[in-house]
Design a protein around this nucleic acid. Structure first.
Lengths: 189, 189
DNA sequence: TATTTTAACTAACAACTGTTAGTTTGGGAT
DNA sequence: ATCCCAAACTAACAGTTGTTAGTTAAAATA
């Protein structure tokens, strides 16, 4: 089913530890011990500690960028686009909750790739903002503070990695649906 | 106006650095250099690195607990209670954005005080949950997934520390108001 | 003026960090 | 049987870590 390579095993083990303690607090010896080997053996598969972080973060960031590109170019209502963004986050996060922790909290420790990551992130935010602005223009979305809406929705979606593991009984489909409802309709009756 | 003690100066400098790189990546020498002194000199004022973290986090966590206690015991509508919770977060965060970063991201490095922090945090969440449940019972709040509402609102409020510094032109009053509106009424038109 | 306190300093420590070099082991291909 | 190679190992490195001990200069107190 899943012929996981040794390198992928290292990356997944590291991501799990990074989520618990953060990148800087995890040592190569921690990762190795968790796998039952010695730290030096890790270097048969990866080139540096930073390389592990890069592999975790960049692939996720590119997945988000790719997903946003499809949503942006789709010909549907603004509400449907927002629902698609919610689904994108739920799906990617459900598949890799550990990696999402690093994406959110450890990106500043990317050295060479930091600027590239930030450009992807800024582009993503800009795309989402323009979806919302278009929705206001089309009268599909309240004409109040778009920045606040953007911030509120993205904050919630970026925190999913903390919450999904605690609610394993909820399927991604259900979660996307109820989350979209709350974000779009609010909580009042 | 602000007769800041040397100890407070250390704590504020540390909090700023902790926000940028995380607790583990900041060294005592980093903190000292930022203040123009040597690392060993810090120990005339604080007892350990962990002690700095504890001072940052516990005071904030207790401020939230205290604020929630007042809201819980106030005799107002559920919507007004939610608005009060939003205001509580905006006010505390606006006053100490650096510390809020540690509260959110570095609490796992509290050693002796970790369990105490977690008990405050869990109590806070439980109180907020019971406010929402009461609102559903009173028909003030949609009878859909309360856990999703709780998660969504708290995620947004806990991310304020990232957003407030970028929008310095927005006053806490305005922010509380527009944020409450988005969280309660949603974004649809 | 004499004395105590505050808050800085230098020097050093033992432990830990990421990483490299060189070696060994065992299984698959020739 | 021989070779190859992936993947583990041991040993060690140079630099960094939080922290302590002991000292010093200036400011506050007596």
């Amino acid at each position: 089913m899943k012929p996981e390579t040794r390198k992928e095993e290292i990356i997944n083990t590291a991501a799990k530890l990074f989520k618990e303690k953060g990148y800087s607090a995890v040592t190569m010896r921690d990762i190795a011990t968790a796998m039952g080997i010695k730290a030096a053996s890790l270097y048969n598969h990866i080139s540096s500690k930073q390389d592990i972080l890069k592999d975790i973060i960049i692939s996720l960031a590119e997945a988000f960028t790719k997903g946003m590109l499809e949503i942006k170019s789709s010909n549907v209502s603004t509400i449907q686009k927002v629902q698609a963004v919610v689904k994108l986050h739920v799906d990617i996060t459900a598949q890799n909750t550990y990696g999402m922790a690093s994406l959110n909290n450890d990106w500043m420790h990317l050295e060479e790739k930091r600027d590239y990551y930030l450009s992807l992130r800024n582009g993503y935010e800009a795309d989402f903002r323009s979806i919302l602005l278009e929705g206001v223009k089309r009268n599909e979305i309240t004409d109040s503070n778009v920045e606040v809406m953007l911030f509120s929705i993205l904050s919630t979606l970026r925190s999913l990695y903390l919450w999904i593991p605690k609610k394993e009984d909820v399927s991604p489909q259900e979660l996307s649906k109820s989350l979209s409802k709350v974000l779009i309709m609010g909580i009042n009756n």
